[in-house]
Design a protein around this nucleic acid. Structure first.
Lengths: 208, 208
DNA sequence: CAATACATACATACTGGTCGGTATGTACAC
DNA sequence: GTGTACATACCGACCAGTATGTATGTATTG
């Protein structure tokens, strides 16, 4: 029942398998041969669709990773509830659904940033597009929070957005060191404490 | 004037060169041959001192990385000034001394954690020793702050310590994505904002 | 004190395996 | 029939690791 030729499907299959392999092994340790074995695609086909390994990796970032992460962020801006509560809910969700394997794998974006951003300028650029889109979406959400009264007035939203991205990636990162999910969840709970401080100071200061 | 034999010096030279190579390339991409070329040590000598590459890498973590990082933490506990101010000063210092190359290299501990913690149990274990020692030192400092009145009373110190470690590593991590030091420093300034919330609420709530 | 014995500390040359990449050929679709 | 979409076989480079040999320092013994 296998279709003889389907270039789009072939390309997508390669991107998906490359994403998984790179997520698990990192880009440089990702094996072209393993990606081929996983998909059943041959080397000739791969090098027909991508000029070299770097182009494959960057296509994974631009086409798979970027879109996958955008699905998460846009939740921040299409709802009309307050963004800080949304962020807290996402933290709770991450804590609730954390399991050993996903913690060990880490964030695919952060993994690549740590490995490649300092080594390859092209990689750094397309990774930066993903990460800065994240920061921008977060900053917009925080600005919206200020406007609808659910965000602390004095807050520097761009600065806070940068920190939130960094802190979250950091929580996922240090979580890898723990035996199970403990370090990860503890770290996230500390982050939840921080997120509460992004709210207007009314509730906290009621007892003074 | 070269001393004919000096096993301790040979071993130290290998560890130092391995640290640099691993810091720059990661563990798996670190080349034994390049470490040898850098030191002038031969392969026979290296494999006399270390049974294999993994043992060399773990020795780097246990002997070089651990001690190097401990020098930074013990500042938190030997002074009698308040720890939160010390942390803020360290952030300021990091911002002031940040340069393009160090940001691109990233934190040697975090680099290794991201690369190896999920892949190799032995590595994870010795990296965890370094990182948990950091968390412990931080938690102790925060507890001390609570005791001498410079720390917020209700704070869960272990949780906050975990978050601080994660957030800082995250700031260094996402900083790699930026063109220069901008993302890194913005992120750290956001972190400084967080650190202020660890203080007792007196100063902030004075205007209510 | 000197000769011997032995372990430590290297040095050199090589191996098998994996890697990304390519050269060349073929079958399908329009 | 002509370009696209594959398939196969192969290449040189590099890799960690090893087999083997040698020089050096040190303890032992006569």
């Amino acid at each position: 029942m296998k279709v003889k030729r389907n270039p789009d499907h072939t390309r997508d299959a390669l991107l998906a398998a490359a994403f998984d392999e790179i997520h698990a092994q990192g880009f440089r340790a990702a094996s072209i041969d393993k990606i081929l074995a996983r998909t059943g695609v041959t080397k000739g086909a791969l090098y027909h669709h991508f000029p070299n390994k770097a182009a494959l990796g960057q296509a994974v970032v631009n086409e798979v990773l970027f879109e996958r992460m955008q699905e998460n962020w846009q939740r921040l801006n299409d709802a009309d509830s307050d963004p800080v509560s949304l962020l807290l809910a996402m933290i709770d969700d991450a804590i609730a659904h954390a399991d050993r394997d996903t913690v060990a794998l880490g964030c695919p974006l952060n993994n690549l940033v740590q490995e490649m951003a300092g080594l390859d300028e092209d990689f750094r650029e397309c990774l930066n597009k993903v990460q800065s889109a994240w920061r921008t979406a977060l900053a917009a959400a925080l600005t919206r929070a200020q406007q609808n009264g659910t965000g602390r007035p004095g807050l520097d939203c761009n600065q806070a957005a940068a920190f939130i991205v960094g802190a979250y990636e950091g929580c996922v990162g240090v979580g890898k060191c723990g035996v199970g999910t403990e370090v990860f969840t503890t770290c996230l709970r500390g982050m939840a404490d921080y997120l509460h401080t992004l709210r207007p100071a009314t509730a906290l200061q009621a007892n003074c």
